[in-house]
Design a protein around this nucleic acid. Structure first.
Lengths: 229, 229
DNA sequence: CGCGAGTCAAGAGCAGTGCTCTCGATTTAG
DNA sequence: CTAAATCGAGAGCACTGCTCTTGACTCGCG
């Protein structure tokens, strides 16, 4: 617990949290690039310079929000995976969870999967939370493989060249899953985010919008494409 | 020709072009949200307020850049389609052209396919150039259908419900192409942009980066998935 | 040709931004 | 109890987008 810490430490942690909350509120209404330290400080009734005691720069505040967003999305994905039955249901549930979270938090989704913020360089600390969704999906594949419901399509080409070692990195997180299945999983993963981004960023207005049916169709077809029966 | 116009008109057109060029230069080095009207005006040796005679606001300048970017990408895609042999080669060539253009103009790609700019509402004038790549791909499908090299996979599910009329809009641009092929084409299209965005936005660093082989593999597999032999 | 209307760049100015530094007050730790 | 660390407040700097006014220039109509 935080009982061992001083009053100042607890106050600091609380204020840090309040700052992020206010920033998130402003993020939702104004968007990432209009997020203003001064506006946040105004909302909290403090002076703008005081914020710099908690976040050394605007970019650091953004980094904190980015990490929180990755973790929130990752948690949503992991929860969906845990509460599903068969591997196929779990895969589809994770895809749905990603989309639903994105629709519910469009600005935060844009923050992590949209264009990188102006010259902003993502620090090391973001890459671990950024991988949680992918890891959840790989875990489902691994489980499907173990329970024998993974039917690698014969017509899938065997990866070659550089891809062998690139997919090897993923294979460590999904032991026993054939490389050609992992290659198709990467295709499905990029399709998932392409589809969600298109929907959120208004790219399929006039065609597949609303995208509920298209989304269900696509994730289902790609699950089959991967070999999750 | 512009011979019929006055000296003032020609000067205005030229300056408009120079402003966009300078803005594009700054876009490439600074990113979209750090694009500054004052910096552009400084580079052109004029005063910031003078720019407002040419673009009523920063958003209007961005809109002009967005339209130019859509058109440049669309032109690249159409050129690739024209210079290819078989429909399958044309399809793959368009995919490659999109990726290459995106890599060569990352900030402009981010401008049109990244997160929408802060509260910026895309005007009507952007939707027509935005469709050029999709229309080029649909044209290839139509051509493949006409020349009999389109082999709609039997295992592809028949679209139902709302998707039927949504895909119907696309069907007008690709007459004769079965709806289930169009559904898979939309899957391939969203995958294409998801893959390119992931690569450009640094999302697959540590896994599939560099992405050349993965890109070739994915586009090839999805072309087959659609039924373009 | 001449002159009014339209167009232009320039400048000052407003409200807002991120960020730095200094200053007293408060709290912590030795 | 005292010295050090931390805190919020405030002033200030260099920016930003944008508006309004001013005086000069150019165009086209009569």
């Amino acid at each position: 617990m935080n009982a061992g810490r001083t009053a100042r430490d607890r106050a600091r942690a609380e204020l840090t949290h309040e700052i992020k909350d206010a920033a998130r509120r402003q993020l939702a209404t104004e968007g990432a690039e209009r997020l203003s330290l001064r506006a946040v400080s105004r909302e909290l009734g403090m002076v703008s310079s005081a914020l710099y005691r908690y976040f050394p720069s605007r970019d650091d505040l953004l980094t904190a929000l980015i990490i929180d967003a990755y973790n929130a999305l990752g948690l949503a994905a992991e929860t969906a995976a845990k509460n599903a039955g068969t591997p196929r249901e779990a895969w589809l549930a994770v895809c749905r969870a990603v989309r639903i979270w994105a629709i519910k938090h469009p600005q935060e989704y844009a923050l992590i999967y949209g264009s990188p913020v102006a010259g902003y360089k993502a620090p090391e600390s973001t890459i671990e939370p950024a991988g949680r969704v992918a890891i959840a999906l790989l875990g489902i594949l691994s489980q499907a493989q173990a329970s024998g419901v993974l039917a690698p399509p014969e017509d899938a080409p065997e990866p070659s060249g550089l891809m062998v070692e690139q997919l090897g990195v993923l294979a460590e997180l999904a032991p026993g899953v054939p490389l050609k299945v992992l290659a198709r999983a990467m295709i499905a993963l990029t399709q998932l985010y392409g589809m969600v981004s298109f929907e959120l960023f208004g790219q399929l207005v006039g065609t597949m919008d609303p995208a509920d049916e298209f989304f269900a169709d696509a994730t289902g077809q790609l699950a089959t494409f991967i070999g999750i029966d």
